[in-house]
């Protein structure tokens, strides 16, 4: 089975300033997510949002984090939209309920971020991440294991992304918003994990929560975007030059 998966693991060699990495989609021709990252602590001045190549950059500071979250929510919302429009065969009532709820929640998050970011930049849509295009390649939406497995990876990734992004936020209001959303993503992750392995400890499994400290993952945008890029799901190129 050529199952796509996002591998969540620390990725080294991503901390070179202005290093652009083209993450090839697994079997997806023309996967377009460009990831670049910066460990530049100097937040002074106004780095160019548009580096001149026509590729959108998420931006810096709170705006960068909001656009970053918007990108991830766009992916989740798009994925579940496809799931609920072609449920896999013999789906149980419980699984249909869970996946439908996740679809509602992620669409709500996505549209919220679009509105919130647009408001935050006073309607200057040049600063708002555009609507992204997605391609799931060989992912078979008729296959329960592939759908739930991908959902698990997306939810796990979302939790790790918000956990890691918290420290990048300077506005307490935005931090609280991230907190309001991340715990719902964690509730999702738990439910999907429970559906995949009922009656087990996987809802908060040792693969995701450290056994010695009881902590869930927290990853920087560069690590998350590299992992997401590796799936090839996101077709629209963008950069994160001003996020760690």
């Amino acid at each position: 089975m050529n199952k796509k998966r996002i591998r969540i693991a620390p990725i080294s060699n991503l901390n070179h300033r202005r290093q652009f990495l083209k993450i090839g989609g697994l079997g997806v021709v023309g996967a377009g997510l460009l990831v670049a990252c910066s460990n530049d602590d100097d937040m002074g001045g106004d780095p160019p949002v548009d580096p001149g190549n026509g590729i959108f950059d998420l931006g810096k500071g709170d705006l960068g984090v909001l656009n970053y979250a918007y990108a991830l929510e766009q992916l989740e919302a798009d994925f579940y939209t496809k799931v609920v429009n072609s449920f896999y065969g013999n789906i149980s009532d419980e699984e249909m309920q869970v996946l439908t709820d996740l679809y509602y929640h992620e669409v709500n998050h996505r549209d919220f971020f679009k509105a919130a970011i647009t408001a935050a930049v006073d309607g200057n849509t040049d600063l708002v991440l555009p609507t992204l295009e997605f391609d799931y390649g060989s992912l078979d939406f008729g296959n329960r294991e592939m759908v739930l497995g991908t959902a698990r990876v997306l939810e796990d990734t979302g939790v790790a992304a918000y956990n890691g992004a918290g420290k990048l936020i300077t506005d307490p209001g935005y931090l609280l918003l991230a907190g309001k959303i991340v715990s719902v993503e964690a509730r999702h992750a738990s439910a999907i994990r429970s559906l995949l392995n009922p009656g087990s400890a996987d809802f908060a499994g040792d693969d995701y929560v450290t056994t010695d400290t009881g902590l869930s993952a927290a990853l920087d945008p560069s690590e998350i975007l590299a992992a997401v890029g590796a799936t090839g799901f996101i077709k629209t190129a963008f950069t994160a030059n001003n996020l760690p």
Binding site: A186, S216, A218
Partner: peptide, 11 residues
């Protein structure tokens, strides 16, 4: 935040 999310997974 890392603990917060684990509590949500428990919940």
């Amino acid at each position: 935040l890392q603990i917060h999310a684990v509590e949500a997974m428990h919940a």
